[in-house]
Design a protein around this nucleic acid. Structure first.
Length: 419
DNA sequence: TCTGGGGTCCTATGCCTT
DNA sequence: TCTGAAGGCATAGGACCC
């Protein structure tokens, strides 16, 4: 059996742990740049705040209903997440940390356990030790555990936050209840297509012929179907595979048309990727650069483009990665466009110790020591003390975070005070 | 004025080599 | 020497997740 543990309204719950006055009150956490709502308390949901609600459009609603609004505080959420995960890992030797607020546990050899009360116990302990409320769905496959989890959340009074799907009747009933667009793995596109074929719930979906699903939704769709039929084909992914790409991308507060300004951003993002590479002891051998106009400004000329730049050797040098990024930008930049978002993604990652040497072109060996020195100075003197000439030298572009809560658990000067 | 950011996997296609 | 088949690899794009 698999259990899916999901933290309820995770970011909101994290804010509440350190600010209990927020309990029972409508609370919303915004995305980076204070763009849109990405976590809502049940009270905020009841007031009709949808997922992804743009903050500027809902400002009045927030004020009118006295909804407490927070900027996202990822260091805090990450720290709370690892506390929850470490508790969960005590309850089964097999755990897959699926995301910041979700984990799968596998119960193998637990045949003599009453899983329902075992999971109640998990739930109580996580709440007692961290203050984070969680819901648990238990079922024979991962996809069905997702379904069970949804049931546990939807009917808290009946389930007490834990739902065990342990019979065919329960499985069929659940699948008939679950709307197709709410199935894990069915996104907007698949939903649109399935709707045309009168597939309205998960049960309709498993009645489709295998080969149709295979053809229209690839093996991914077929695997999902098997899982929903109760045949387990997805196992835990316990060892986290190393990252395959590292991205730094941002939207601007307004739009930018000037090449020089875009260049500064791209250079800064490329350097940021290089820093992330060094932090995890990796190199890359290519960088993807993209630019996008504002898709919401329908009256303006739309343009989006990206380019993959191959670097002839593996590197994590600010200088090299930034150079190739700017070269890429030159190729895709078009005049007269109002750019809204640009980004840099480094790809072809390997670890520092084991990269492929090129026969003809290799990095200037001095870069390695230079980067070490830069990292050292950044660490001791503070971030962004050292920049490339191509970066924006005067002021550092800052993310909009007007309603940020303190880093209660991960910055010593912001730790919670008890009077 | 103001609509996030960071990832993964799968497939089709085209080129190159054997 | 020419040709077709088959496999490897890179690339782009589509779909999804949180």
């Amino acid at each position: 059996m698999f259990a899916l543990i999901d933290c309820n309204n995770f970011y909101v719950s994290c804010e509440r742990v350190f600010n209990p006055q927020l309990d029972k009150k409508p609370v919303v956490v915004l995305s980076n740049n204070d763009g849109c709502a990405i976590s809502r308390s049940n009270e905020a949901k009841a007031l009709g705040i949808p997922m992804g609600a743009p903050a500027f459009k809902y400002e009045k609603v927030f004020r009118k209903n006295n909804i407490q609004v927070f900027s996202s505080n990822f260091p805090l959420y990450g720290d709370m997440s690892s506390r929850v995960m470490s508790i969960l890992s005590k309850f089964s030797p097999n755990i897959e940390i699926y995301s910041i607020d979700e984990a799968f546990l596998k119960f193998e050899g637990f045949e003599n356990y009453d899983l329902e009360s075992y999971c109640q116990n998990i739930k109580d302990m996580v709440f007692k030790w961290t203050g984070i409320p969680i819901s648990i769905g238990i079922a024979p496959t991962k996809a069905l555990a997702k379904v069970s989890n949804r049931i546990s959340k939807k009917f808290p009074n009946k389930t007490k936050g834990v739902y065990l799907m342990n019979s065919e009747e329960k499985r069929i009933k659940a699948l008939k209840w679950l709307k197709i667009q709410d199935v894990w793995g069915i996104g907007f596109r698949h939903y649109e297509r399935l709707k045309k074929y009168k597939v309205n719930n998960a049960y309709d979906f498993i009645l489709l012929p295998d080969n149709w699903v295979r053809k229209k939704m690839s093996v991914v769709g077929l695997r999902l179907k098997k899982e929903l039929e109760g045949k387990s084909v997805l196992d835990l992914e316990e060892v986290k595979s190393p990252k395959k790409a590292i991205a730094t991308t941002r939207s601007f507060e307004g739009t930018i048309t000037d090449y020089e300004k875009i260049k500064e951003r791209i250079s800064t993002f490329a350097v940021c990727c290089a820093e992330k590479l060094r932090a995890q002891n990796s190199n890359c051998n290519s960088i993807y650069v993209f630019v996008k106009s504002n898709k919401f400004q329908k009256n303006k000329t739309q343009y989006r483009n990206g380019i993959l730049m191959t670097i002839p050797y593996s590197t994590n040098s600010n200088i090299v990665i930034s150079k190739y990024a700017i070269e890429g930008l030159q190729k895709i930049f078009k005049k007269g466009i109002n750019y809204k978002k640009v980004g840099a993604i480094v790809m072809g990652l390997d670890s520092s110790g084991s990269h492929q040497l090129s026969l003809f072109e290799n990095e200037n060996p001095k870069h390695k020591y230079l980067m070490k020195t830069i990292d050292y100075i950044q660490k001791t003197e503070g971030q962004s003390k050292i920049k490339l000439a191509s970066q924006d030298l005067r002021k550092r572009w800052k993310m909009k975070q007007e309603k940020l809560s303190p880093n209660y658990t991960c910055k010593i000067d912001q730790i919670i005070k008890v009077k």
